[in-house]
Amino acid sequence: MSIGNSPEDDRPSTPPSDRLPIGRVLQQARIDAGLTVEEISTSTRVRIPIVHAIEEEDFSRCGGDVYARGHIRTLARAVGLDPAGLVEQYDAEHGGRPSPTAAAPLFEAERIRPERRRPNWTAAMVAAIVAVIGFVGFTMFKGDDSGSPTSHVAEGPAPAQKTTPKPTPPKPADPVPVPSDSAIAAAPKDKVTVRLTATEDKSWISAKASDGKLLFDGLLQKGDAKTFQDDERLDLILGNAGAIELFVNGKKVEEQFDDGQVERLSYTKGDPEVG
């Protein structure tokens, strides 16, 4: 009989044997649906190499856990699966969602901040007293000299002093108006206007006009914003929809999106309405 835990007790837990890998489940569902990798990539906008990598259980090409969850949700919906179970399995196999940062260091930093130096009132009072004594002595000394004879000069009209007009400072130029975020509130009624702001994290976005012209296709870093406008319609794809704050025709879209979720949206003139 051994004392303590055996080496086998320290082995990491493994998923049940009847639980298939995420990539295998997605691949089998795609094959059962009669779809090729190229067709899945076209319908979901997930690039072909990433689809192949996910089906082979390689999530390193997704660009992080947030994008990996988003790709899993998108591919699962495309092949008719419920993404919740697969995302839960991904979290269990990859350490789960990151825990929030503890706030204790912030309070500790406030606690060790050096105190503000107080003014030296004693030195200020001494300086004020010395100044008063000096002023009184100067006044008494000047009063004693007032009895000395002085010469009188006949007074006449004082010569007119020639005054030089002061130059008028140049008038400052009117400031150039700078467009602000409030300008979106005055969006024209005859156009569709969309403003995207990455508030929580970076997000890949794509925007097309009604004639199919690509207006933007790239990454919005956290804090970046883009505004698009068209006469008829704007088509959008949001790669990490949960990180985007969306205004359409001057009104905020209140619909909640998940982190890593890929959304395809279309907007026209009038009130915000998902197309």
Results as ranks from 00 to 15, higher is better:
Leu26Gln: 02
Ser148Lys: 15
Arg118Gly: 14
Pro149Ala: 09
Ile184Pro: 00
Arg19Glu: 12
Leu86Pro: 00
Leu236Glu: 02
Pro159Gly: 15
Asp9His: 10
Gly70Gln: 00
Lys162Glu: 13
Ile133Asp: 06
Glu115Lys: 00
Thr36Asn: 11
Phe107Met: 09
Glu255Ile: 15
Gly80Gln: 01
Leu35Gln: 14
Gly156Leu: 11
Lys166Glu: 08
Ser146Lys: 15
Ser13Glu: 13
Gly80Pro: 01
Ser17Gly: 12
Lys269Gly: 01
Arg117Pro: 03
Leu75Ala: 02
Ala225Met: 10
Arg45Tyr: 15
Lys191Cys: 02
Ala225Val: 09
Leu215Met: 07
Arg111Ala: 01
Glu55His: 08
Phe138Trp: 10
Met1Asn: 04
Lys166Pro: 01
Leu106Gln: 12
Arg111Gln: 04
Asp144Gly: 11
Glu110Asp: 12
Ala128Tyr: 12
Thr193Pro: 04
Ala160Glu: 05
Thr227Leu: 05
Thr164Arg: 05
Glu8Ile: 11
Pro165Cys: 08
Asp18Arg: 07
Lys226Val: 05
Tyr90Gly: 02
Ser146Gly: 10
Leu219Asn: 08
Asp201Val: 02
Glu200Leu: 10
Val274Met: 14
Gly147Lys: 15
Gln161Leu: 08
Val79Glu: 00
Pro114Arg: 03
Pro157Ile: 15
Cys62Thr: 12
Val66Gln: 01
Ala103His: 00
Ser6Glu: 09
Pro170Tyr: 07
Pro98Glu: 01
Arg118Asp: 13
Lys269Gln: 06
Leu81Ala: 02
Tyr267Thr: 01
Ala53Gly: 06
Gly134Tyr: 03
Ser180His: 08
Asp10Trp: 11
Arg118His: 12
Lys213Glu: 09
Arg69Val: 03
Cys62His: 03
Ala92Ile: 12
Cys62Ala: 11
Arg47Asn: 14
Asp271His: 15
Pro157Val: 09
Val46Thr: 07
Glu57Pro: 06
Arg195Pro: 01
His94Cys: 12
Arg118Trp: 06
Asn5Tyr: 05
Tyr267Arg: 03
Pro16Asn: 10
Gly212Met: 05
Phe138Ser: 14
Ile50Arg: 01
Gly34Thr: 02
Glu115Leu: 05
Phe228Asn: 01
Gln161Asp: 05
Asp82Gly: 09
Ala243Glu: 05
Ala124Arg: 13
Lys251Glu: 08
Glu254Asp: 14
Ser203Lys: 02
Ser206Lys: 12
Glu88Gly: 11
Gln161Glu: 05
Ile129Arg: 07
Lys269Thr: 07
